[in-house]
Every structure is written in C-alpha cells, then in structure tokens.
Simulated assay, not measured.
Amino acid sequence: MPILTDFIPPSSAKALDLPTVSKGAPFFISFHASVEPNTGKPWCPDVVAALPVLREAFSPDHAPNVAFVEVGQRPEWRDPKNIFRTKWNLTAVPTLVRFESVDGTVKEVGRLVEGQILDRARLSKFISSREARI
C-alpha cells in the first residue's frame, strides 16, 4: 500500500530529498490533526471526514506514495511557532501537498486544503495529473 504512516518529515519542505521524490513520480504529504488518546480519532472533524477519502484515493496499487503526518494535538497546532506552520507553511488541516522533482530540485507543485480534499473528482485529478498546480 502506498500510504506511509511511519514517515518522519524533515525539518522543512526545503529539506525533502530526491530519493523520496524519485523518477518523476510525485510524492504527497497529507497533514492531519493528531489522534486524541481518549477517543482514538483526530481532534479535527475535517480530518475525520477527509481520512476515508484519502485512504480510498491512495490505496490502489497504482496510486503514488503519500505520507500521513500528524501536526500535533490542538494546543500544539494552535501555537504560532508550530513547526508545520512555520516550516511547512500550513494554515489548516487537513492539507494534502504534492511534491515533484523539478530540474533536480524537489518543489511543492500544489496543495488541497480542508473541503477541497472531499471533492473526489478534484482529488483524483490532483493525484493523477501531471499538471497538478491548483
């Protein structure tokens, strides 16, 4: 399955390396609210709604790789100094970011945020399109 749940993100998007984004294939990172220990679910209802859609989209064998990354519990996420806010330029969860190798450098080429992920047609196009800049 191309869903990576044990991916440890580098300190920032600029630190993604070429082995992660290889051979022209896109690499995706899906940023989520962390799971609350007392409920077993993410604290953000938008993430709870998006996770089944994301799992479905990335589960086929032909789907590109995606890393699921948790951004922290609600107090951590709300901290303006949260690394995902400062180094990954996130303003909301869930956020799905597409990275590609462009001229030998890994670059972000698009992202879907919150409700955009629930639009299955838009998500499918974003995942499969060579021209994913949205």
Score class of each variant (00 low, 15 high):
67 A>Y: 05
106 V>Q: 01
33 A>K: 02
74 R>D: 09
60 P>K: 08
54 L>R: 01
7 F>D: 00
129 S>K: 01
103 D>T: 03
132 A>E: 14
27 F>S: 00
41 K>F: 08
117 I>K: 02
108 E>N: 02
113 V>H: 05
86 T>R: 12
84 F>D: 03
32 H>Y: 15
94 P>W: 03
116 Q>D: 10
54 L>M: 12
104 G>N: 05
84 F>E: 00
30 S>C: 14
33 A>D: 02
114 E>F: 08
46 D>K: 06
124 S>W: 09
37 P>W: 01
130 R>G: 15
74 R>S: 09
67 A>C: 06
73 Q>P: 05
108 E>L: 00
44 C>L: 12
113 V>Y: 02
89 N>F: 11
70 E>P: 02
133 R>E: 15
132 A>V: 12
74 R>T: 09
9 P>F: 01
52 P>E: 12
68 F>L: 04
61 D>M: 07
47 V>W: 04
43 W>S: 02
107 K>S: 07
64 P>G: 08
70 E>G: 08
69 V>Q: 06
113 V>D: 00
133 R>T: 13
19 P>K: 01
84 F>N: 00
124 S>E: 14
108 E>F: 04
64 P>L: 06
128 S>Q: 14
105 T>K: 14
32 H>Q: 12
125 K>H: 14
18 L>M: 09
42 P>D: 02
60 P>W: 09
55 R>V: 04
107 K>E: 04
60 P>G: 07
62 H>D: 13
123 L>Q: 11
69 V>Y: 01
106 V>L: 03
77 W>T: 05
93 V>W: 06
71 V>A: 11
67 A>E: 04
24 G>R: 06
69 V>S: 01
91 T>D: 08
39 T>R: 10
1 M>A: 11
121 A>R: 00
134 I>C: 15
41 K>G: 02
84 F>Q: 03
92 A>H: 04
57 A>G: 05
25 A>N: 14
81 K>G: 12
5 T>Y: 05
